[in-house]
């Protein structure tokens, strides 16, 4: 955040990035659905060096009661980083950054979840960042979608997410921690492919109007790749042979 140093080589002369990827390549993503015993639904994602656990409870009674809505269910999201998840110990209490990210992830998921089917209840999504390596909000959103589906909560679509950005004057897919720190722009995107709707979008950094459009399009390609991995994670749990449905 803020400190954009240019002393790391983010893109070599062959167009290869600091971690060996091409410009339009995501990091390795693996998702496993149903990893917790007590939660209604859960998922574990490894997105490059990010390791994130998602747990969903509900629909269940709302506490405190005044938060309940007679017309619809409510969605509550907590994004939380463990003290040991980053280089320097992070204080365990939720920071302002975590509160904001919780809010944007909640708003990215709301269009997908059919909360109106469960009036007066709450669906709670807990996202625990065990290890952070750049792009945690996208990876957490990916895991949250799978955990919600695993909980059997009716959804219009899975929300898939991936960041795009700009480093060394080049648009890149799936910005890693190094590129976020030293690059020129980071744009996390959340997307519902079947509905063609972008439900999470933020940007830090400078882009021209033309780069802005291309950056979204590049990010959506990454989202679609993650979407397939999300569906496979659910297939593997519920159709254990892994066959296509």
């Amino acid at each position: 955040m803020g400190g954009r140093e240019a002393n790391v080589v983010l893109l070599d002369e062959n167009g290869i990035r600091s971690d060996g990827r091409k410009v339009n390549e995501t990091r390795k993503v693996t998702i496993k659905a149903g990893v917790l015993k007590n939660a209604s639904g859960s998922a574990y994602i490894e997105f490059g060096g990010n390791k994130i656990l998602a747990g969903v409870f509900g629909p269940r009674d709302v506490h405190p009661k005044h938060m309940s809505n007679p017309d619809t269910g409510i969605l509550r999201v907590r994004y939380h980083m463990e003290p040991f998840s980053v280089g320097e110990r992070k204080k365990p209490a939720p920071s302002r950054r975590e509160i904001e990210i919780s809010k944007v992830i909640k708003e990215a998921l709301e269009p997908a979840v059919m909360l109106e089917k469960f009036p007066r209840t709450a669906v709670d999504v807990y996202l625990e960042i065990l290890q952070a390596d750049g792009g945690t909000r996208c990876a957490a959103l990916d895991a949250a979608s799978v955990a919600l589906a695993d909980a059997g909560i009716p959804m219009r679509d899975l929300v898939c997410a991936c960041a795009s950005g700009k480093a060394a004057d080049t648009l890149i897919l799936d910005v890693n921690n190094e590129e976020d720190q030293a690059g020129q722009a980071d744009m996390p995107i959340g997307y519902m492919p079947n509905l063609g709707k972008i439900t999470l979008l933020q940007l830090d950094g400078v882009l021209t109007a033309d780069e802005y459009k291309k950056c979204i399009e590049l990010g959506l390609e990454g989202c679609k790749q993650v979407y397939e991995i999300q569906k496979n994670a659910l297939r593997e749990k519920y159709f254990s042979s892994g066959d296509k449905d």
């Binding site: 709301e110 063609g196 709707k197 972008i198 439900t199 400078v206 802005y212 979204i216």
Partner: peptide
């Protein structure tokens, strides 16, 4: 310069491209 420097989407629904 007319370049985009920051962006935030909010609210309980999305946008098309």
């Amino acid at each position: 310069d007319g370049n985009i420097v920051a962006l935030q989407k909010g609210g309980s629904d999305g946008f098309t491209l």
